[in-house]
């Protein structure tokens, strides 16, 4: 049975502990998939109900780029596919 998706009520994206989430365009998507030579299913996932994606226009299959702060490297990119 699929779990019921609960739509988040609060926007947490401006909280200082929540890294920036950006939706990639189709072109950017292709670049990422080509770079790592993978199919969409091989990416880490993110729920479309994730609070960080509050009120973002997203569809399953989109790639979200997450820019995380890092002590050693400043900023680190991480990619997740919306499910």
């Amino acid at each position: 049975m699929a779990k019921k998706i609960i739509i988040p009520q609060v926007d947490v994206s401006s909280h200082r502990l929540v890294p920036k989430h950006i939706r990639l365009t189709d072109d950017e998507k292709k670049v990422v998939l080509d770079k790592y030579n993978i199919a969409l299913s091989q990416l880490p996932r993110i729920s479309r109900a994730d609070p960080a994606l509050f009120e973002m226009e997203i569809n399953p299959g989109d790639i979200i780029k997450i820019i995380r702060p890092s002590v050693a490297r400043g900023e680190v990119d991480y990619f997740r596919v919306v499910i």
């Binding site: 993978i38 880490p44 890092s70 002590v71 050693a72 490297r73 680190v76 991480y78």
Partner: peptide, 14 residues
């Protein structure tokens, strides 16, 4: 499965 867990090891390659 060759599913990606981290894009760079430990996010800093150290």
């Amino acid at each position: 499965n060759k599913t990606i867990i981290q894009f760079t090891y430990g996010d800093d390659n150290i």
